[in-house]
């Protein structure tokens, strides 16, 4: 028994364990993956929004994939304010030019990047959004300035279908 020699039996054991592990894995995976978003959820992936009625300085909230999307038509002052912020003052440095390609329109997920609450409009110390749950302050570009949230509010994929219609997703 003390001899440490690999023999045919060891090989058979190892091969059996390996095949068994693959079999178990292949059986468990469908049980796990069934919990991921299904085809019907994925099918609702894009929304078109008519923004012609939104005046400068106003925000509308639309539902996309079950989450709120803020669409804010910013005033010239707000745009100037957002663009004047220095990158080194930001916790998550992003230029406003990259976040709002058309500077008048800020389209972003209205979801606090801390734990997913919906921040309140025109509140907080940076003239942007404030999350009531755990006190994160965002600026007028939706960038995190103060509080526990780690990153800026997310910009979803969107495009202007025409001058008055935004397609999100």
């Amino acid at each position: 028994m003390s001899e440490k020699k690999t023999n045919r039996r060891d090989f058979l054991f190892t091969a059996t364990y390996a095949v068994g592990a693959v079999g178990v894995g292949a059986t468990i995976w469908p049980m796990i993956d069934q919990m991921n978003p299904d085809a019907s959820v994925k099918a609702l992936a894009s929304t078109e929004v008519d923004v012609s009625a939104v005046n400068p300085g106003k925000t509308i909230t639309v539902l996309w994939r079950g989450k709120p999307v803020f669409i804010r038509r910013r005033t010239q002052d707000e745009i100037a304010e957002a663009r004047a912020v220095k990158l080194e003052d930001l916790k998550h440095p992003e230029k406003d030019e990259d976040r709002a390609v058309n500077p008048e329109w800020l389209v972003m997920l209205g979801v606090c990047t801390h734990l997913g609450c919906v921040p309140l409009d025109q509140k907080g110390e940076y003239n942007g959004w404030f999350c009531p749950c755990h006190g994160s302050h965002y600026d007028i570009s939706g960038r995190i300035r103060k509080g526990p949230a780690p990153t800026n509010m997310e910009i979803p994929k969107y495009e202007f279908v025409n001058a008055n219609t935004i397609k999100i997703g």
Binding site: I32, M35, N36, P37, D38, V41, R65, G66, K67
Partner: peptide, 12 residues
Amino acid sequence: TWLWGGYSVDNP
């Protein structure tokens, strides 16, 4: 996303 079965807390 896996826990939710979607992109937010919803029916799934």
